[in-house]
Simulated assay, not measured.
Amino acid sequence: MVSRKKTEKEKIIIRPDGAEILTKGKTGGMPLLMIPGLGGDSECWGGVFPRKLREGGIDPLVYDPRGLGLSSCGSLEPSISLYAADAAAVLEDRAPGGAVLGWSMGASVAIELALSRPDLVTRLVLCCGSGDHGMLVRRSPEVFRPILDREAPVAELASVLGSLLLPLNQRGNTPFSRAFLSVIRDSFVRHEEGIRSQQKALAECPPAMPRLQEVAVPVLVIMGDRDGLIPPREGEKLARALRDSRFEIFPGGHGLIYECSAELAERVCSFLSFPGRDTTSPSFAGE
Rank of each mutant, 00 (worst) to 15 (best):
L33Q: 04
A19N: 07
A152N: 07
L91R: 04
M105G: 00
A89Y: 01
D244I: 05
V189F: 08
F176H: 07
L166N: 01
P65A: 13
V121T: 07
T27A: 15
A285Y: 08
D17A: 07
S187M: 13
F247A: 03
L148C: 02
E193R: 15
C127G: 03
M223W: 00
A239K: 02
H254Q: 05
V100A: 02
L165C: 14
R66Y: 06
K6N: 05
G286Y: 10
S245M: 07
H133Y: 13
I12W: 12
E192Y: 08
G224L: 10
E266I: 03
S104R: 08
L76G: 01
G74C: 10
G57E: 07
A179T: 13
F188Y: 15
W103P: 00
A216G: 11
H191W: 07
I58W: 05
G28A: 14
R178F: 09
M223E: 12
N169Y: 12
A107Q: 02
L124A: 02
S42D: 05
M1V: 12
S79E: 04
G57W: 07
Y63S: 04
Q198N: 04
R54K: 14
G276E: 14
D17Y: 10
T174I: 14
L164M: 07
A110L: 09
I249R: 15
A241C: 09
G29E: 12
